[in-house]
C-alpha cells in the first residue's frame, strides 16, 4: 500500500490548512473584543472633523462647492463610503504583511514556512479573517456614522459590488508583494504607515481626486484604487466619474491581472532571497 506523505499535499489538505489559519486568526482577534469596538468607533474620530469642516464650507447647509467636483452635495455619504472601502483595502493591502510581521514577532514564522503548504496560501489565509472582521466592524461603523452624520445610499448595492471584485483581487497582488518586502526588511512599520497614508489620501478616500492640484492628479490616476472608489461611489450615491464607467471597469480588470502577476512574481523572487539570506526567523 502506498501511504500519502505530508510532502505530497492535496487540495483537501490545502483547504484544511486554510481553515486552520482562518480559525487561529479568528480566535486570536476575538480574544480582544475591544479591538472590534475600537475598529468601529476609531474611524468616527477622523470623520467628525471633516463633517464639521464640511458644514463650515456649506451654503445654507448644502456643500455646493463639493458638488461642483463630485456631482453630489452629500459629502458625508461620499466620505463614509470612502472610509468603508479603505477599511477593506487596508485589510488586504497591508493585512497580509502585518500578519507575517506578527508571525515573525511571535516566533512561528520559520516553523510555518517549513510546512508543506503553498506560501501564498498562508498569505491568503491570513487575509480571510481580516476581511470578515472588516465586514462586521464596517457595518457597525456605518450604522453609528449613519445615526450621527447621516448616510444616504441611493443606488443599487449589488451593482456596486461589480467594481469591488476586480479591485479586491488586484489588491491581493499588491498584498503579496508588500508581504515579501516586510519579510525582507523585517521592521517596515514606518514605511507602511507613510505609504498607506499616502495611498489612502491620493486614491481619494475623503475627496474627489479631480480637486487635486494638476501636478498631483497623475499620482491619483496611476492608482487603480482611485477607479475602484470612483466606480463604487458612482453606483451607490450617483457621483460623476473621472472616466466613463465602462472604461473604469476595464481598467480595474486589467489592473487586477497585472497586479496579481507582478505581486506573485515579486513575492516568489523576494521570498527566495530571504531563504538564501537565512533571515526568515529573524525580526
Amino acid at each position: 500500500m502506498h501511504a500519502q506523505t505530508l510532502s505530497q499535499p492535496t487540495l483537501a489538505s490545502h483547504l484544511r490548512a486554510l481553515f486552520a489559519l482562518v480559525r487561529k486568526d479568528w480566535k486570536q482577534y476575538w480574544r480582544y473584543p475591544l479591538n472590534a469596538v475600537s475598529a468601529m468607533f476609531h474611524p468616527l474620530i477622523w470623520i467628525a472633523p471633516i463633517y464639521f469642516m464640511g458644514l463650515a464650507f456649506s451654503i445654507n447647509g448644502k456643500a455646493e462647492g463639493f458638488a461642483q467636483f463630485s456631482g453630489t452635495t452629500d459629502f458625508m455619504s461620499f466620505i463614509l463610503l470612502g472610509t468603508v472601502l479603505e477599511n477593506f483595502i487596508n485589510a488586504v493591502f497591508w493585512g497580509m504583511g502585518y500578519a507575517l510581521k506578527n508571525d515573525m514577532d511571535s516566533g512561528v514564522m520559520e516553523s510555518n514556512w517549513l510546512t508543506p503548504i503553498p506560501r501564498l496560501l498562508i498569505l491568503v489565509g491570513h487575509s480571510v479573517t481580516n476581511l470578515v472582521v472588516t465586514m462586521i466592524t464596517s457595518i457597525g461603523m456605518l450604522f453609528f456614522a449613519g445615526l450621527i452624520f447621516g448616510f444616504h445610499p441611493t443606488g443599487n448595492l449589488w451593482a456596486a459590488f461589480a467594481p469591488v471584485v476586480p479591485m479586491m483581487i488586484g489588491l491581493y497582488g499588491f498584498g503579496f508583494a508588500f508581504a515579501a518586502v516586510v519579510m525582507l526588511l523585517r521592521d517596515a512599520n514606518a514605511l507602511v504607515d507613510m505609504s498607506s497614508f499616502l495611498v489612502q489620501t491620493f486614491s481619494g478616500s475623503t475627496f474627489p481626486v479631480n480637486a487635486l492640484p494638476r501636478f498631483l492628479l497623475p499620482v491619483a490616476l496611476a492608482l487603480p484604487l482611485t477607479y475602484g472608489l470612483d466606480a463604487v461611489r458612482s453606483r451607490l450615491i450617483g457621483t460623476t466619474t473621472i472616466l466613463p464607467l465602462p472604461w473604469e471597469m476595464v481598467l480595474l480588470v486589467v489592473f487586477m491581472f497585472v497586479m496579481l502577476w507582478v505581486g506573485m512574481a515579486a513575492f516568489r523572487s523576494l521570498e527566495r532571497r530571504v531563504r538564501v539570506l537565512g533571515t526568515l526567523g529573524q525580526h
Partner: peptide, 21 residues
C-alpha cells in the same frame, strides 16, 4: 494633506464654498 484636499474640494471650482469658510 487629506484635510487640505477635502477643504479644496469643498471650496468648489468657483470658490463659492471657500467664501463661506
Amino acid at each position: 494633506l487629506g484635510y487640505i484636499f477635502t477643504a479644496r474640494a469643498l471650496s468648489g471650482v468657483d470658490g463659492s464654498g471657500l467664501a463661506t469658510f
